[in-house]
């Protein structure tokens, strides 16, 4: 099939309106086979609306959208047969056991009883839930439920996996375990689209990402590229007591750029140590000073003037 392009998802001028509110305001997206693609942005940026359109459960208002080379508007069921969806809120079937959640879900795809039984056993191992197979879903921890939801999304061997804020609300240990599973899937060649408002998650998982804000894409690239393009190598974070807090203008000559946040200053510079030394020479004594590497958080702040997680 020579005309099949490498783009699993291709959007041009994609828009979504709910009444008078426009959640997605004309975005272009290309997701290539095998990559992990991220939508990064704060709540209300239009990430989930975009995901729902790609998942063929929300008709687009305007623009073109191709998923697996098909149109979600007319080929929804055919596309959904080949993708896996991990929604933002777990919607496991509380009336079924852990194993039944996988088996019955597989049956919705029209898979045979024998096929789903073998698949469920394999996925229970993958999700580290084999010991809980016969248990009801409700007593499972948040991390276990999330892993089960991800296992469920894999029951049809999807070519494309959509994960909407996969680790929101999980403790650090559960997040790392989940990231590890997602990394294994990537290694197995499963294309993934992830939305997140966690910078570390985007940096850990995504090969390429777009930063969304107010329904539009404000930047696009790999995490490293974005940091290089929109930030400096290092950041000096300063906290002052209210009495000793200087004007931002005093700090600006010392570094490339200064961001003033309610509780601290962020000083962008190639060399944080040197900036800290100059600070001392200028007679400024912060309550605390911390030099760190730039992250996507800084990219976001630069692009939108706001922090991601308030």
């Amino acid at each position: 099939m020579p005309n099949v392009s490498d783009a699993l998802v291709q959007a041009r001028g994609l828009r979504k309106r709910f009444g008078s509110f426009e959640a997605v305001r004309g975005i272009d997206v290309d997701v290539a086979r095998g990559e992990v693609f991220g939508f990064l942005g704060p709540n209300g940026a239009g990430k989930s609306s975009t995901m729902r359109m790609i998942a063929c459960v929300s008709p687009r208002t305007e623009g073109s959208l191709q998923v697996l080379g098909m149109d979600p508007g007319s080929d929804g069921p055919r596309i959904r047969a080949r993708i896996g969806v991990v929604p933002q809120l777990d919607n496991l079937d509380a009336e079924l056991s852990v194993r039944e959640n996988l088996e019955i879900y597989g049956r919705y795809f029209g898979l045979s009883r024998r096929h789903v039984r073998a698949k469920a056993a394999e996925l229970l191992e993958f999700a580290q839930l084999a010991e809980r197979a016969g248990d009801p879903v409700e007593p499972l921890s948040g991390g276990m439920k999330r892993r089960l939801t991800i296992a469920r999304s894999l029951v049809n061997d999807p070519e494309l996996l959509l994960l909407d804020e996969p680790t929101t609300g999980l403790d650090p240990q559960a997040r790392h375990l989940l990231w590890d599973r997602l990394y294994r899937l990537k290694r197995d060649g499963v294309t993934q689209i992830i939305t997140t408002h966690y910078m570390d998650e985007a940096e850990q998982l995504c090969d390429r990402l777009v930063v969304m804000d107010g329904g539009v894409i404000v930047a696009e690239g790999s995490p490293t590229e974005l940091i290089e393009r929109y930030s400096t190598r290092e950041v000096l974070e300063l906290r002052f007591t209210p009495e000793a807090r200087p004007e931002a203008g005093v700090l600006e000559p010392l570094v490339d750029r200064v961001e003033e946040l309610p509780d601290r200053f962020l000083l962008y510079t190639a060399d944080g140590e040197r900036a800290q030394a100059e600070l001392a020479r200028a007679g400024l004594t912060p309550l605390s000073a911390l030099v760190r590497r730039s992250s996507l958080e800084d990219v976001f702040l630069r692009l939108t003037g706001r922090t991601l997680v308030d």
């Binding site: 459960v57 079937d93 029209g110």
Partner: peptide, 8 residues
């Protein structure tokens, strides 16, 4: 919602 993510 979960069911509609499948071909159903």
């Amino acid at each position: 919602d979960a069911m509609l993510a499948t071909p159903l």
